[in-house]
Design a protein around this nucleic acid. Structure first.
Lengths: 136, 136
DNA sequence: TTGCGTGCAAAGGTTTTGCATGGCA
DNA sequence: TGCCATGCAAAACCTTTGCACGCAA
């Protein structure tokens, strides 16, 4: 590989798994369980932890915590532009929505201009219920 | 006490400590260290953990995690109304600001009416730099 | 052939829990 | 007096790390 890393089965499987679930996030344990189901030969848990850390450093994944109970969570980093809009995570289904609407960006400008707060969108998260879950 | 709990020195000291620092948040370890400095007789660490959990259940404190590295954090719950506005935490100084401005609330209404998202303000947090920290 | 990747087991840090004792009301 | 609170130590949990071996390029 270009970056001085080898392209192994475990690495490919993890990337493929996250790409198949771009708007969801998983703990190391959940990834481990999924790989166990998908692959014949399951990588060890420490390999999963190591790959998740490496992929986070490479900015392929985002690593964060969420709420009071969870362990570390990992999610695929979207192509680009996420630093320019807010995100909202549904507390029911866990999906993350990109709030790429003008009103959200207006607020960020207002907070900077009038309140002096420079919000870092890529690490901020709003929580609530999405439409599907509210009406479901 | 009214809620079937006893009012002990450790409990009072923890509440007093958080009341003295209403806009900051602490790990159990930090609370333990502070109490060690403030009190002659320091409560054990497990007592600190237990009291922090109990106070969180009683909604005196809020218990949450933050970012990729931190342990559990605890912060005093403000008197009321926090469920009606957004909050912003400065990544430099750690202070939490209450965004009780019309524009923030407009956004919440917009997200509900136009996008179907019902944001839960009390568990959402924006991160960024506050004016003081930006200007050094 | 070189050096990164992997698995296992052990270590590390944080938080919780069991149990006997101590203290509030 | 009856519960709740506390301290200590052990357990539980999640994540990282050391080391020897395996495998990609």
């Amino acid at each position: 590989m270009a970056n001085g890393r080898y392209n192994t089965a475990a690495r490919e499987a993890i990337i493929a798994f996250f790409c198949a679930n771009p708007d969801r996030q998983f703990t190391a344990d959940m990834v481990f369980d999924e790989l166990s189901r998908l692959l014949n030969k399951t990588p060890g848990k420490s390999t999963v932890y190591r790959l998740l850390s490496i992929l986070s450093e490479e900015r392929v994944l985002r690593k964060y915590r969420d709420g009071a109970d969870s362990g570390m969570l990992y999610q695929l980093v979207r192509g680009g532009g996420c630093e320019h809009h807010l995100h909202m995570k549904c507390t029911e289904c866990g999906r993350v929505y990109h709030l790429e609407c003008e009103r959200s960006n207006d607020l960020l400008g207002h907070l900077l201009d009038e309140h002096g707060f420079r919000i870092n969108s890529s690490i901020s998260m709003l929580y609530g219920e999405c439409e599907k879950c509210r009406k479901g």
